[in-house]
Design a protein around this nucleic acid. Structure first.
Lengths: 245, 245
DNA sequence: CGCAGGGTTGAGCGCTCTCAATATAAGTGG
DNA sequence: CCACTTATATTGAGAGCGCTCAACCCTGCG
């Protein structure tokens, strides 16, 4: 199921034209681009690359050359500590951009595929050139970078001031929204990451994550069986967040 | 003491030329710009603005129009929760850039001055134009945004996987490095933020922060008296980090 | 001098971690 | 296809780190 269910009806047709080959919605969807510009954006896609489950798309410290748009699949990005401890900085799916932290030098983190995936390669040199010619794209690119910063700030808020159940509820609601945006079910999905990876991302130990899944299930908020999750009560999950004294 | 002690000898003279009026080192220092370009970069500085202690430079949700370079003073940036809880996302000083999270719409967080400060206003529209003409600046701008992302990832690592003492040690070492870079003492400085703000930034309660300061003092790592800090044993602080099992 | 904001310190609790055992699923090779 | 191995999840018991609540102290300022 790689076809995209567009959620911006007005932009749907244009999207089909420009991004049928690759999910560039992040870069071109909301911008008002003329057809000619759209063609140039499409040409940014230098090539595609398959990444098998467990393989790295790029490694921390590796020379930066391109940004990647995920065509299909699922990734985690992470940082490695001196002592080998991992901090998962994010999970990325279908249609999202990856590798922007490397701009201006070397990749800061590592991106690892959690299932067989395919990405579009957007060489930075090309982006530079095209965004110079197309102000709308330049603005768009900056906006994407800014949104990444805002996203990270949200996670900082989560890690800095939420309790364990709030973190997991936030995580599930976020995943749900993103699946919905992409035309998948927002209430039933398959987690591609392990409890350990979820824990690393949320600043919790894997046992805590597992316990919380069980607790949420007991409360009738979700149904879990290993990696399969069904959300039974979205409002209930939101109430977990609202219940902060 | 607003004069900047340049740390890149080669670029020092140029820096003096272009940035004497405002600390634009973030944007122009490492890039290979010709004199003419430097002039254009300097012209980015549309105006200056004084911000009194406690005042907001910009507010979350406010329309984005400019990025700010801190000429003198000290700021915190923070997010406000639905319930009014604050997460401090960073502290910014002399020569650093602020407000990039707003690019592409509205400011995502709030920036509040922790002492009487002065900033240079860099209107985004101008940056857009100039960076289109000067590839080096464009690359530089992207790099600044990417560095912000990398910085946030570092904080995520701190919040997600470090224990309280490691967090405070990291915080102190980071401040120390930044003061050094700007020509101030790296071992003795005045904290402009409260224990509560430090705690919010590090994901700790203010009492915990206070206790840790006392503990570090007892161990001979630092000397603290209220907001005045002297670092006695940098290597010792680094050992706090290394001692992660 | 008195007040207010910020900082320190103590006692006790509770959330999350640690350690450990068991269960379940997913591979792997014969 | 099945026995075996390995990765991943679940669950329990107990400990500890950081939080909560509370009292007190310090400093600057009207």
């Amino acid at each position: 199921m790689n076809s995209v269910t567009a959620i911006h009806p007005a932009a749907a047709s244009k999207f089909e034209v420009t991004c049928s080959s690759c999910n560039l919605r992040e870069l071109c969807l909301p911008a008002g681009l003329c057809d000619e510009d759209l063609q140039r954006v499409e040409n940014l896609v230098y090539a595609r690359r398959r990444v098998k489950r467990g393989e790295a798309l790029y490694q921390a410290g590796g020379e930066f050359s391109a940004v990647y748009a995920i065509r299909s699949g699922f990734f985690k990005t992470s940082l490695l500590d001196n002592d080998g401890r991992e901090q998962v900085t994010g999970f990325f799916m279908n249609g999202e951009l990856l590798g922007m932290d490397g701009i201006g030098g070397a990749y800061h983190g590592t991106a690892i595929s959690l299932e067989d995936s395919e990405v579009c390669i957007l060489p930075y040199a090309l982006i530079e050139d095209v965004s110079r010619d197309i102000p709308a794209l330049q603005r768009r690119l900056h906006a994407v970078l800014a949104r990444e910063i805002a996203r990270d700030h949200g996670i900082m808020m989560l890690l800095g001031s939420m309790r364990a159940e709030e973190r997991l509820a936030t995580f599930l609601l976020n995943l749900s929204k993103r699946f919905l945006r992409r035309g998948y079910s927002s209430t039933e999905f398959h987690l591609r990451m392990t409890r350990d990876e979820i824990g690393s991302h949320l600043g919790l130990k894997l046992e805590t994550v597992s316990r919380l899944f069980s607790a949420f299930q007991k409360e009738g908020l979700i149904e879990v069986q290993q990696k399969h999750v069904r959300i039974l009560d979205i409002a209930g999950l939101e109430r977990v967040l609202a219940a902060r004294r």
